[in-house]
Design a protein around this nucleic acid. Sequence first.
DNA 1: AACATTAGGGTTATCGATAACCCTAATGAG
DNA 2: CTCATTAGGGTTATCGATAACCCTAATGTT
Lengths: 336, 336
Amino acid sequence: MVTIYDIAAKANVSAMTVSKVINNTGRISEQTRKRVKKVMEELNYIPNSNARSLVLQQTQILSLLITDITNPFYTSLARGAEDSAKKLGYRLLFGNSDEDYTKEQDYVDMILSTRVDGVLFAPAGDHSLKHLEKLRAHNIPFVIMDRAVPGIESDIVSGDSKQGARNLVEYLINLGHRRIALVNGSLDVSTARLRYQGYAEALQLHGIALDEELVIHKSYREYKDEDQLLQLLQQPSPPTAIFAANNFLAVGVINALRKRGIRVPEDMSVVCFDDLDLSSALDPFLTVAAQPAYQFGAMGIQLLVERIQGSAVPESRKVILPSELIIRSSARTIGK
Amino acid sequence: MVTIYDIAAKANVSAMTVSKVINNTGRISEQTRKRVKKVMEELNYIPNSNARSLVLQQTQILSLLITDITNPFYTSLARGAEDSAKKLGYRLLFGNSDEDYTKEQDYVDMILSTRVDGVLFAPAGDHSLKHLEKLRAHNIPFVIMDRAVPGIESDIVSGDSKQGARNLVEYLINLGHRRIALVNGSLDVSTARLRYQGYAEALQLHGIALDEELVIHKSYREYKDEDQLLQLLQQPSPPTAIFAANNFLAVGVINALRKRGIRVPEDMSVVCFDDLDLSSALDPFLTVAAQPAYQFGAMGIQLLVERIQGSAVPESRKVILPSELIIRSSARTIGK
DNA sequence: AACATTAGGGTTATCGATAACCCTAATGAG
DNA sequence: CTCATTAGGGTTATCGATAACCCTAATGTT
């Protein structure tokens, strides 16, 4: 690999002069500058960012840790983050924890040893606390995405899970549904708790008793376990509608229903949080509370960079992006 | 940040001893080793991989450059690559070129300056040649994914686009279709050329003349331009079936058709390359030639690491993964 | 004319870790 | 008892780039 010393030798200057040309600092005559630049091109010089980072104590790299790269919500978020990072002059190091705390821990160590300038962190859940504390202990700025983690104060960009859930459930109630089931994510994820609360509030507001028999808490990703769903349906007074707490759960629920010959929406209404992008483009079927995932990422990077550059207020900032109720055809009036 | 010198001072040894403990090299007594390790934990030491990379001349980082992070094909591929990289002890630096040569170039420079050990490269198209040549000029090993680039010899993992296309078109022919349109990607992408060839061969094999009026070449991502499609349909002898060269194009085509009140598959059959994952899980509708995207990534990393570690044969290796024809309901027998 | 500036560039130390080599006391061999 | 080994660890130089400071000749000032 060619280094600034190679350039220096060939251009008959010192390495420092080359460095000054590269960074546009110091006093260099136009003549010398041109000569150096020409040699740089001839030798195909590419600066070594490891060496640079070592002395500058900064890398111009941000890390984005998401929990599921196959989920459209996170890939849209990633694109928002990437575009925003690029605009601000940062590179992005992606990580994918697969909703797995062990993988998440590995990534945190990797992040620390890479000395990234900051982290956009979508936590797997409440137990991510110690990973965030580790980042903080090492003074790495971070912004939390999507899921709040009790016990940690920080900038965060999230959706309005409670309100979104309320909107969906009220929509179902307005269609005449009274027995509404909730297929939720794990309760150690903040969004799952809030969606549960929104669900409960909507019911209460309309004088409907919350029946815990109608609520399942599993994981946002285990959308293939059908046993619990079966139990749900075999109750004396089964639900007429199901609120799935995210897109993957909705797909799992609908698949399971169809396998049993239960049609959606004819026999069962289904709504969910998060849109499906391509799916919905192909077939506008699922009624959802869609979140502006791209904005999540773009906004997150912006907050993060402000934090890194010290231009942010000292207090932590909470950005809550509203979700949009998109009514399609997976739910219908009860009885008809 | 804590360095090995801090550890050394507190443990009353030299920095070199700490380094030896970390890397398990040299001769260190069990007693000293334990003492050093204890101090490392107390101080929460994390090695600086930039410093390490500088002297070792290797980073343990691989780069994965894809062309569209919102396409399920590439996200599955990314997961395969990630799992495989992790297993082999490498970190993964993602990049997303958005099918844009300029972005791709930026990423190549970034990759070079990061001094990654190797690159898994999904090229935007034929003009990626100069980017690959640049990598080669700098002696960075790479494996090409999905799309071959004329003019460059290298390891490559790709699908069998020609065969997959033939299968799809023959399937349509067997259903009785004779007027079959092709909505293709840009011809400066190898897979688009091969899918076109497969399409042509299938027609020829069955004695059907290829009518260029039925062929559109656009981009794999511009699936929203409906004008050309309109022309296609307004011909004297319009097509009865459409072969879309990838999943996004299929979605665009179907949307455009529906907007005009043309039903799929009743009025028009549609098939395509690449599956839609979530969509297909929700609604097994599109008949597709599905590629094993996860294997693409996993296999790619494996080839790459073999290349890096010098355990590969000197000749470049071409891995071709077959696609699978999945028949669902977006195409039907003509006339019925 | 004498001194102060400044343009243009060079020297040296440093970031954190490791390779290559060196050193010393203790142990072993004969 | 004497010399050779070895266990255990330390010294020094190096990776590539930059910060901080230094140096010299030319230019400007009064």
